[in-house]
Nucleic acid binder design. Structure first.
Lengths: 203, 203
DNA sequence: ACCTGAACACCGTTCAAGT
DNA sequence: ACCTGAACACCGTTCAAGT
């Protein structure tokens, strides 16, 4: 049987790692995480095969947060506003978490739990896009996967300023607004390259 | 006097580091770079105070590439097309270089040489934006700094797919096109947050 | 069953010894 | 004046020894 202190330590480690990764990015040391959790650093590797897997677990949690929000928005009154809200939540999560973008680029296909969350994220994005398109709120050459990939864009733009968005923590809203204006219907230019396929995304 | 082998080694190191950073990101080991250059790893630290400074030197070179391209485009016939071309070149540089985005986020203010290049980049972006606005090619609430920050956006979107854009190496063009459509004049929404100041960018 | 810290192979960086 | 590799303090990861 799994012991009581084991489940407690696992939770302490998840909490400590979540906070440290968010504050300092994915390069924080395991020792630092273990110390913050109040356990020996050997304990980290009893609960997680590798540092990458620990990061994946947390990254997956964040993705599920976004999936849950997206599912709520799937039945909202205004499909266009719902899609914007979905992108807002997704971008805000990244703006608050230094490790999110790094994890998105570094983990991509590796861990199974991440793959599953990404699949669900793509599903809910497809739903939101379909509804928004039906309402005429967005151009019709944009796909759900496009939306998922664009989630990183606005928060990344801000990183060039320095820190975790140290000063100007809400600047991402400006670039999200610009990007969303590019998704609107109207006199758009044809896109030069076809949308990525689901297979490319899932890996 | 600086010896002949010293200037030769410095060039070999810059070339090796440029290639390795582009291919494998900024986490490649100094040993690997030194080996590729054909020198002992102690030599790296004779030419560059730190790994970060070596990265900064290369990053700065890339920025100057873009500045030079921007200066050419400052006198182009079609100011709107010139701005798009500037963003295309900037995004392509990043799509080809795994370390560029990482360096942009990690170095930001630290190194003096980077600061100078960023300043010149902001200058040329201001010029291009002013001309494009004069020609009515873009909305009038977009600044030169906005353009600089948005350069990272399109290439970052693609990173969620995995690798250095392993498969689908031209997908960034799709997202750059969308983003550029968001910069066009017309029925845009007001931006929720003011543009960043030059001081914030320069650090 | 689980925790722990010493031990290992790496990393970036320093520096005494060479030419 | 510069090059070099051994030496140092770290890192992620493993594992024998404890409870």
């Amino acid at each position: 049987m799994t012991r009581a202190d084991a489940v407690r330590n696992r939770r302490l480690l998840m909490d400590a790692a979540t906070a440290e990764f968010a504050e300092n990015g994915m390069d924080v040391s395991i020792t630092r995480i273990a110390t913050r959790a109040g356990v020996g650093k050997g304990t980290v590797f009893r609960h997680f095969d590798t540092k990458e897997q620990l990061l994946a677990e947390i990254f997956s949690d964040r993705l599920e947060e976004l999936v849950a929000a997206g599912e709520c928005l799937s039945t909202a009154d205004d499909p266009g506003a719902a899609l914007l809200e979905f992108m807002t939540i997704g971008t805000e999560i990244q703006a608050r978490d230094r490790s999110f973008c790094q994890a998105a680029a570094a983990l991509s296909r590796s861990e199974a739990t991440v793959r599953a969350s990404r699949e669900r994220l793509a599903d809910v994005a497809d739903t939101l896009v379909a509804r928004a398109r039906g309402a005429g709120a967005i151009r019709d050459d944009v796909t759900g996967l496009d939306i998922v990939l664009l989630l990183s864009a606005a928060s990344q733009a801000v990183l060039s300023l320095g820190g975790p968005g140290g000063e100007n923590p809400s600047l991402w809203q400006r670039y999200l607004a610009m990007i969303f204006d590019g998704l609107r219907p109207g006199p758009t230019h044809p896109l030069p390259v076809p949308a990525p396929t689901r297979a490319q995304f899932t890996g």
